[in-house]
Write a protein that binds this DNA or RNA. Structure first.
Lengths: 202, 202
DNA sequence: AGACGCATCCGTAATATTCCGTACCCCCAG
DNA sequence: CTGGGGGTACGGAATATTACGGATGCGTCT
């Protein structure tokens, strides 16, 4: 019998997972939280084998939360669970050390499989995530990220240049590199792509 | 005792709602569907009092589905249920005739309240949606929508003008009207806003 | 009918962006 | 140590976008 802790801000989702896991005899849900803070608080006194967490929580950055949780529960295995899988979440969670990547549209048998794999210390990556893995594994330089953020905020070349203390012309160079890396041909597409990939919020 | 039918593509969410509704004695869940087609099929032989449906389904446009369902179940009351409330969904569902607007982060008591209100024939709009209602009730002209779509697809003034058979200068006029209506000051912000409001996909 | 708001449309001139090429720094593998 | 690759940075000329201002037609309200 293994123990599991749930973190998701939607009560429905928590209830759904609990209901589903009732059908799995070797798993017992020993606690849940609707926010990062609540999770940190409750996990001080618990030591689950598995922790399933959403990355988009009202009060916490997903990957930082993951790292904090790992400090508190170093022996637990972590899985992230999300409705809209994207490359950035995947990369961050992987870096932080998550073992499995699950999506909310999986069915019962796939959840059970994923959990059993994790208990055995194996990775599990849902198809929705692995599709992303093969495509998007681009790294952006610090400067490129700053420039991307500037454009995402609706700034002009001149404004971004002023903010970064470089010429608008140089901003353009970084933008051109971004366009190439992202495989798009305009700033708007670039930002849209960044939103889809979770680099910036909509 | 009233009957309820659930439509959502995430099994977890369906399970969560069912688990939650077990705690409500005057409601019985008589069926569920994971897609629009499945819902249309199953509802041929059912006649629930309430239908709770997600608007974002893999095989169906939310508002069109709503209209189809209403033809099949003319006596049912409809509620839409969504994770990310936005102005466009709200407007479409309202136009289609939904009675209630619920979000997935509501808690149990709020769901129960909403259901009771609906059974009494009253509207219920969750706070997340009503916040939107007060801000975003803008109408866009056909030309503006076409121009917005053009920019969202990463096209230039010239390209949009060519596609719509108008001068790039006129495209700009429409864009300026859009910027004003949306309260933003650049094309990128406009597109980002359009994504957030559900006018275009990310 | 007349006045009005609103959607649609465009020309010219100022401004911003983009194209093309170039250059420096740092790191590290040959 | 030397050459190559990547990140960063910029200038001048060509091109696109924007600001400003004006025009037409089409409903509606009086």
């Amino acid at each position: 019998m293994s123990t599991l802790f749930l973190i998701d801000d939607h009560k429905i989702v928590r209830d759904g997972l609990k209901a589903m896991l009732l059908g799995k005899p070797n798993i017992q849900v020993i606690g849940e939280a609707a926010s990062g803070l609540e999770a940190l608080e409750k996990l001080k006194n618990l030591n689950p084998d598995l922790i399933l967490t959403d990355l988009k929580l009202p009060d916490a950055n997903g990957s930082e939360l993951l790292i904090e949780l790992m400090k508190i529960c170093p022996s637990a295995k972590f899985a992230i669970l999300t409705a809209d899988p994207n490359a950035t979440d995947l990369a961050r969670a992987q870096k932080a050390g998550a073992l499995a990547f699950l999506t909310k549209d999986m069915d019962t048998t796939e959840y059970f499989l994923a959990i059993d794999k994790m208990l055995a210390g194996q990775r599990y990556i849902s198809t929705a995530f692995s599709d992303i893995l093969v495509n998007d594994t681009v790294d952006y330089t610090p400067r490129e990220k700053e420039v991307l953020r500037g454009f995402s905020d609706g700034l002009s070349y001149k404004e971004i240049g002023a903010k970064l203390d470089i010429s608008p012309r140089t901003v353009e160079t970084h933008k051109n590199h971004l366009l190439e890396k992202m495989g798009v041909k305009s700033i708007v597409e670039m930002v849209r792509r960044a939103i889809r990939d979770g680099l910036v919020e909509a």
